[in-house]
């Protein structure tokens, strides 16, 4: 087992013919992901590396049975792309696009309420179940199949953590980047719920950062979890009021600080890695006990 994506995932790529979309689609295919369709309005009927391209998501789903979508369309059109995928009933939508206007996301999240579609992102690296399926930008070769679930708000810091785990010979069940924006679909808590239920996952590594209250909400849920959690929060040195790259990584009020988040996670029972260089080591200690 694993969560969200596995060997049964049939992936559709929205924006498959764009430069980023085509580059990463090829890398996902090389990893073993079953890419069944692409969508680029106006390019329907053509094909990309043997994958049929459609004008519309609805048609692509009918013809190929796609059950997940990866979105690479530019920020101005990304909200529309998410809505189109959800309207077509796709179960999992992974939106990679960075820079979607916040008010567009308000509409998207409003529409998704009560729908069966789960959105990951936007502004995220995607999701991978090592050895089974990769839907996103992450370098596949740093991963190793196993039983640690990884969930994070960032991209390259997740790769850093995963690489440290693999160096310690600790494999991963599924690794998810939920995204660096203030408004995202799937949250830490949503992912923790899935890991808690997943038979394969035995330990969860959570990587948070400054801004918002997602870590505190995660901490509330961790209190009731049976599986151990190792956590790292980046941004202890970040000054308040400045946006640290991610739109969501900005300290406003005391709840947004790293100190506050670390304290919430620690008191909920998570084991804290105080240095980003020790995430793998701490995970190994907890994993072996």
């Amino acid at each position: 087992m694993s969560i969200l994506v596995d060997e049964n995932t049939k992936l559709l790529v929205q924006g498959i013919t764009g430069s980023e979309g085509s580059f990463h689609t090829k890398r996902c295919m090389a990893y073993g992901t079953r890419v069944v369709a692409g969508v680029t309005p106006g390019k329907g009927g053509t094909s990309f590396d043997g994958v049929p391209v459609f004008n519309e998501v609805e048609r692509a789903v009918k013809d190929t049975g796609a059950n997940a979508s990866m979105i690479f369309v530019p920020p101005a059109f990304a909200a529309d792309a998410i809505l189109e995928a959800a309207d077509a009933g796709i179960a999992l939508v992974v939106c990679i696009t960075d820079g979607i206007p916040t008010l567009d996301m308000v509409t998207v999240l409003g529409y998704l309420k009560g729908k069966s579609t789960s959105l990951i992102g936007p502004n995220c690296p995607g999701v991978i179940s090592p050895g089974k399926c990769k839907v996103g930008l992450m370098p596949g070769d740093i991963h190793m199949p196993g039983s640690v679930g990884v969930v994070s708000r960032s991209g390259t810091l997740t790769y850093e953590a995963v690489a440290q785990l693999t160096e310690q010979e600790i494999g991963q069940s599924t690794c998810i980047g939920v995204g660096g924006d203030p408004l995202i679909g799937t949250t830490f808590v949503d992912v923790l719920k899935l890991f808690e239920k997943d038979a394969e996952t035995r330990l969860v590594v959570l990587i948070g950062e400054i801004g918002g209250t997602a870590e505190q909400e995660a901490a509330e849920f961790i209190k009731g979890m049976t599986k151990p959690v190792v956590a790292f929060v980046s941004g202890s040195t970040a000054p308040p009021g400045r946006r640290m790259g991610h739109a969501g990584a900005i300290i406003t009020g005391s709840s947004g600080t790293a100190v506050e988040k670390i304290e919430a996670l620690r008191s909920a029972g998570a084991t804290i890695a105080s240095s980003p260089a020790e995430i793998g080591l701490v995970a190994r200690k907890v994993f072996r006990t």
Binding site: R153, G155, I210, S234, T237, A249, S274, P276
Partner: peptide
């Protein structure tokens, strides 16, 4: 650094080692 999360983590580890970062700089993924 490439990536905002890793850039913040890099600042943090500089501080942990007893120095202070001069900046946050994310060159971006691509």
């Amino acid at each position: 650094v490439n990536g905002a999360g890793l850039a913040m983590a890099t600042m943090d580890i500089i501080k942990l080692m007893g120095a202070e970062p001069a900046n946050f700089l994310d060159v971006g993924g691509g």
